[in-house]
């Protein structure tokens, strides 16, 4: 089964307070940040690699971004991708639509039975990209996939709905799936693995080579401003015995005019 996995490079911001919005209020200060593969995309990659290990066929990891995005492709190659392609275009982050156009064009130029994307990204969390690409390719799709079993010419898929309900059905190939976290346990990518993957092919293309012009990539959605949410609510810990704290609470409620 030939698979394409789309991945995105995002900052590893495990400690929230290290993020600062740059003066232009249009993006965050990237200076000291460290970058990694978007979590959802790592689950998609692991799904792809396991599928390839089971069924054979090729696995291509693709992304759309500038030169420094090669590192995430190296990690994808170390994880098990046979080859990697980067479309050299610094996309405006918030606009999934134009990224989808690039990915759709790239995918059309490659042999594929299945396209796997992460359900959403950790930075903007739009959750639109995969399904848009599917629509552009005219292939059936399913979002938020938490279970996948390949069959002859099709895949059996489980989708995660609210309240823990699972919905499962089969989809004819070629198809596109967006992968939810928890579907598997992504493997660790060792430094030795990355070194060995240096030998694998990483191809760089320009949008032009895919027949895409600047107008075609004009963003549908314009980002106005980035800001931190206002510090609204606050929490008060009421000490003392149950009686004391009850009395204290009552006085707070009265002063807030609730009664």
């Amino acid at each position: 089964m030939d698979i394409i996995a789309c991945i995105k490079r995002i900052p590893d911001t495990s400690e929230a307070d290290t993020i600062k919005i740059d003066p232009s209020q249009m993006s965050i200060e990237k200076g000291s940040l460290v970058f990694k593969i978007n979590d959802w995309d790592e689950y998609a990659l692991e799904t792809a690699v396991q599928l390839k290990e089971r069924t054979g066929g090729s696995l291509i990891a693709v992304t759309v971004g500038p030169k420094e995005w090669d590192d995430v492709l190296r990690r994808a190659l170390a994880m098990g991708a046979d080859r990697a392609i980067r479309v050299d275009q610094d996309m405006v982050a918030a606009d999934c639509h134009s990224v989808a156009i690039v990915l759709a064009a790239l995918t059309r130029s490659l042999p594929y039975d299945l396209v796997l994307c992460g359900a959403q990204s950790e930075d903007f969390g739009c959750g639109q990209l995969g399904v848009m690409v599917a629509e552009m390719l005219g292939v059936p799709h399913a979002a938020l996939v938490v279970g996948l079993q390949e069959e002859e010419g099709k895949v059996r898929v489980d989708r995660e709905l609210e309240a823990g309900i699972l919905e499962s059905y089969t989809i004819e190939l070629p198809a596109l799936l967006t992968i939810q976290t928890g579907i598997n346990r992504p493997r660790y990518i060792s430094l030795g693995g990355i070194k060995r993957a240096m030998k694998k092919e990483l191809q760089v293309m320009s949008p032009g080579e895919l027949g895409l012009t600047a107008e075609m990539l004009a963003p549908q959605v314009k980002l106005e401003r980035l800001e931190f949410p206002p510090r609204g609510k606050e929490a008060v810990l009421i000490p003392g015995t149950p009686e004391e704290s009850a009395e204290h609470l009552a006085s707070i409620l009265q002063s807030a005019g609730i009664f």
Binding site: A100, V131, H141, A143, L144, E160
Partner: peptide, 12 residues
Amino acid sequence: SFGMDLAPALSV
């Protein structure tokens, strides 16, 4: 989960 599966395709 229904909306995420539908809206992007509809928009395209």
